[in-house]
């Protein structure tokens, strides 16, 4: 019986039937640069800094996020403001080292640093991958707009 099976190529023909059937099935490809799969709700993309509704910085430069970061990605600079409070001068996120674990977001007591859903951030030059305060605030505006849209 098994000899007969081999001689008539039963198993081989079965396989060929499957491939032929598959050929007429619709494809499952997502044509990436033209079509994109929207990221999941909790996707961790690149960082952003949120602003308060009145336009002041949410970040108080407490260094907790920098402290938590396993890859030493975050660094910030601050100075004493007019009213004696800490004031942020620069906030840098070095994406070349970041592993997108989200611990900085967990650590932040003011919910200032958040993660957007942006995953396409390739650059031709490595120093463009180090994000500064302005970039992060820009991303923060994008993030907040996005949050409002989601609701």
């Amino acid at each position: 019986m098994s000899l007969l099976k081999k001689a008539t190529f039963t198993d081989l023909l079965k396989g060929m039937k499957i491939t032929l059937k598959t050929m007429f099935k619709p494809t499952v490809t997502v044509h990436y640069p033209f079509e994109k799969v929207p990221p999941r709700k909790r996707f961790r993309g690149i960082h952003a800094l949120k602003l308060n509704p009145d336009g002041s910085y949410r970040c108080e430069a407490c260094y907790l996020c920098a402290e938590m970061c396993p890859s030493n990605v975050i660094d910030m600079e601050m100075t004493e403001g007019k009213d004696g409070k800490k004031e942020l001068v620069d906030f840098t996120v070095d994406l070349t080292r970041c592993l997108f674990c989200g611990l900085c977001v967990e650590a932040c007591p003011r919910d200032a640093i958040v993660m957007t859903d942006i995953y396409e951030f390739s650059q031709y030059s490595i120093d463009k991958l180090i994000l500064h305060k302005e970039d992060l605030l820009e991303l923060g505006r994008y993030y907040q707009k996005r949050q409002r849209e989601r609701k």
Partner: peptide, 13 residues
């Protein structure tokens, strides 16, 4: 194209 569709891909597009 044929190889692609047999694997439910779409081949060169």
């Amino acid at each position: 194209k044929v190889l692609g569709h047999m694997q439910q891909r779409s081949g060169p597009m």
